[in-house]
Nucleic acid binder design. Structure first.
Length: 258
DNA sequence: ATGGCTGCTTTGAGCAGA
């Protein structure tokens, strides 16, 4: 399975790029975040034309997640679009069993600033995810948890660790969340392999951050031990951040042998 | 030191993102 995650920052704006990219990258499963559109506006027809079925949990203007599955890849069952015991109008999660692999797609809240109400919401939301994932991991041998985590797990995932020390996305409570998901047995697929230093998945639109490579690695694909054992590659599709109308995030792509 | 961009909004200046 070729599994990708990409925060598109508006599907409506990014649709041409998505439709170009799918046939080139040829992922089997894609986790999209920040679709920013209701389910009826997901352009399923155009996506189907390039060979993908879409399953989504969307809302107008903000948030929204979708799972794209390549035609013929396998059955899609047990679709879930909400966290149990955490009522939330914000659409940030979709999970499905795809060809026997449980795929969980997360758009973790941004958190704004440490100590803010939004930061509290981020930590509470993540705690609800942790409790839910424990059950998901126990039930499924093959499980992948992918998405925009809005957490840079280590200093090497940050262009300027001193400037970011203790800031949102790098704070200790957020990094503890990431480690608690690892403690469930999930493995950071990116770190299974030798990677170039200063490889990031997000760059601010401002401050010439991308040309200066002032970014963070906040988009992740975690794999159960079974999937990690057959994972042959993981990379960040940096060129997707270039050119006309890029998202501020680049896709992360993991390849898992059958 | 601040903000610097992009996308959204009952089309406007303001919010949100990270």
């Amino acid at each position: 399975m070729k599994l990708a995650t990409w925060n598109v920052n508006s599907l409506a704006i990014r649709l041409p790029r998505l439709l170009q990219w799918l046939p080139l990258a040829q992922p089997d499963v894609v986790c999209l975040q920040e679709t920013k559109c209701e389910d009826a506006s997901l352009h399923c027809a155009e996506i189907a034309q390039v060979g993908y079925d879409a399953h989504c949990s969307g809302q107008k203007s903000y948030n929204g997640v979708a799972l794209l599955v390549r035609h013929g890849f396998g059955d899609v069952t047990d679709v879930v679009t909400a966290l149990p015991d955490f009522p939330d109008p914000q659409k940030r999660v979709i999970a499905a069993t795809i060809a026997g692999t449980r795929v969980v797609n997360l758009y973790v809240p941004n958190g704004q600033t440490v100590g803010s109400d939004k930061y509290r919401y981020k930590l509470d939301w993540c705690a609800a995810v942790t409790a839910w994932l424990a059950g998901e991991v126990a039930r499924a041998t093959n499980i992948a948890v992918a998405g925009d985590f809005n957490i840079a797990p280590e200093d090497r995932d940050v262009h300027d660790p001193l400037a970011w020390e203790g800031q949102v996305m790098c704070s200790e409570p957020e990094r503890a969340v990431f480690r608690s998901w690892q403690a469930l047995g999930l493995v950071d697929s990116f770190r299974l392999f030798e990677q170039p230093p200063n490889t990031f998945s997000w760059w601010d639109y401002r401050m010439l951050a991308f040309p200066k490579n002032r970014g963070l690695r906040i988009d992740h694909i975690l794999l159960s031990p079974s999937l990690a054992a057959s994972c042959t590659a993981c990379h960040i599709d940096r060129p997707m951040r270039k050119g006309e109308k890029p998202s501020d995030h680049a896709p992360v792509i993991a390849e898992i042998a059958p």
